[in-house]
Every structure is written in C-alpha cells, then in structure tokens.
Amino acid sequence: MSATFGLTAGRTGITGTAVAWRPAVAGLVAQLAAAGDLHFTEVVAENIHLPAVDPRLESLAAGGTVVVPHGVSLGLADAARPDAARLRRLADLATHFGSPLVSEHVAFVRACDTPDAMHGDVLEAGHLLPPPRTRDSLAVLADNIRIAGEQLPVPLAVENIAAVMSWPEDELSEPEFLTELTELTDVGIVLDVANLYASAIARGTDPHADLHRFPLHRIAYVHVAGGRWESGFYLDTHADPVLRAVADLLTDLLETVAPASPGVLLERDEHLSIEAVRADLAVVNGAFV
C-alpha cells in the first residue's frame, strides 16, 4: 500500500464541500450530489452493516460520489494492537464502496490493564480520548497504524480529536505529535478544524498558531462541525451551529494551503434536520473567501 496523501496529490476525488451521510439527511446529500455540489461523503463505519446497506447510500455511491468509511471505535492509540475484526470491517467497507481511503482517529477508546485486550479487564470509555503525547505513546500509535495499514486495502488517514483534557506527562505539543506521526508512518491527516479549536481552547493555546504548526501537507481532507460553550470550554457536539470562530479557522487553513483546495466535510449528528445542515453549510461555504 502506498499513500496518496498530500494536498497536491489530487487523486482521491475528495474535493469541494460535503456533508457526512446520515439517514436523516440522505435526501439532501443525494440532492446536492445530483446538482453537482457534492462529490464525496463519509459514513460512520460502525453504522453500516454489509450487505444490508441503505439503498439511498448505494445509489449515491453508484452515481459516482466518493464514500469514505470513517471509523470511531478502532482505538488506534489504545495500548493494545488494533482489533482484526474492526480492521476487517473498515477494509470490507472500503472495498464495497471503492473508497480511495478510510479514516479513523488519533484516540484511545478502551483501556485494559494489560496490552492484551483478550485477557484483561477491558474498560470501554465509550468516547474518543486523547492519548498521552509521550514518545512511548507515539511509538505505540505508529506501530498500530503500521499494523492497520498492512490489513487495509487503501490508505489510512487519522483525525485530530477534540480533547478537553491533557495528560500531565505530555512531552510533545499536539502539532509536534502529529507531525512526528506523519514522519514515522505514511498516514494522512483528517484535519478537524472544530476539534483543533476545542483542544486549543482547552489547553489555552492559540488555535491559529497551532493550525500553522500542524502537518498541513499531509491533509487528506478536512472536517468541520458545530459545538457550544460549557464551563469555559468549547465542546464539539455535532449538535449545534458551526461557530464563527471555527469558520474563521477554516478560512485561515484554506488561505494557508491555497492554491491547493482540500475537501471539507460537515459533520452533524444530533438535532439533525435539513434546515440545520443547510444553515451549517452556508457558514462553511462562507469560509471559502
């Protein structure tokens, strides 16, 4: 497997503005695709069960829209090696949809008192948690990505998560951690600007300064989503409107990488209506200046 990432690669078909495919907005996604306003989308891998795929999604893919399987439960930053069954699901979905890549997160989702999850007491966090940004943790993550890459038929891209907390033993900043990760592996980056914003606010750094230190040349595509403030933190809820500050961060990214123009995908998972998605899309499209 050789990676096709990089802003000038332009071979993945992942371009323009897009909306994550969810059953509640399947009609809108189809409408945008038919009008030539959407060229790719993303599905949550854990919600698609082959061979019983929603016919609206099959039709979308058959019409030429690129479908990217996006995993949320692999736990690439777990101490344990990635689970073969979860990798197989991602691989099967990529094959089924003819996807140019699959994506996951730089996160751990379960913990076990031994690195052998088959024989320990496993605690499921039920959420994407940030790994400690130490050199040892980075080495484990890189090895897990290498293992995943060997079992996937297409390249893998990993997304920065929204992290409210930081570990006391952190040795690297998030931009440094991700940059070193891309140097150790051939992984691409799904840069989520809303997550970047949330994490920067939580650790008290400047989101724009952090953005410019990310490995932008390895971007496969971009995520954006809505959120809300709580207790002085910004929460990436996927349930609220896209914040102006997040849209500004997206503008900064697009200006920085121009003339390259990565695909930008809007995620919305709750309070999911066509009106809400259209309103978010207007904000996202407004970020292209």
């Binding site: 777990d78 344990a80 913990a111 690195p115 320990g120 790994p131 040892d136 080495a139």
Partner: peptide
C-alpha cells in the same frame, strides 16, 4: 521496547479511564 511501552501505556490508560 515496544512491548514494554505497550504494557506501561496499558496500565496508565486503565488507571486514568477508571
């Protein structure tokens, strides 16, 4: 070394998640 790192990371993550 990687096995050692995995073991230490497992214990640390388990403690924090608990």
């Amino acid at each position: 070394e990687l096995d050692v790192a995995r073991g230490q990371l497992a214990a640390r993550q388990a403690s924090v998640v608990a």
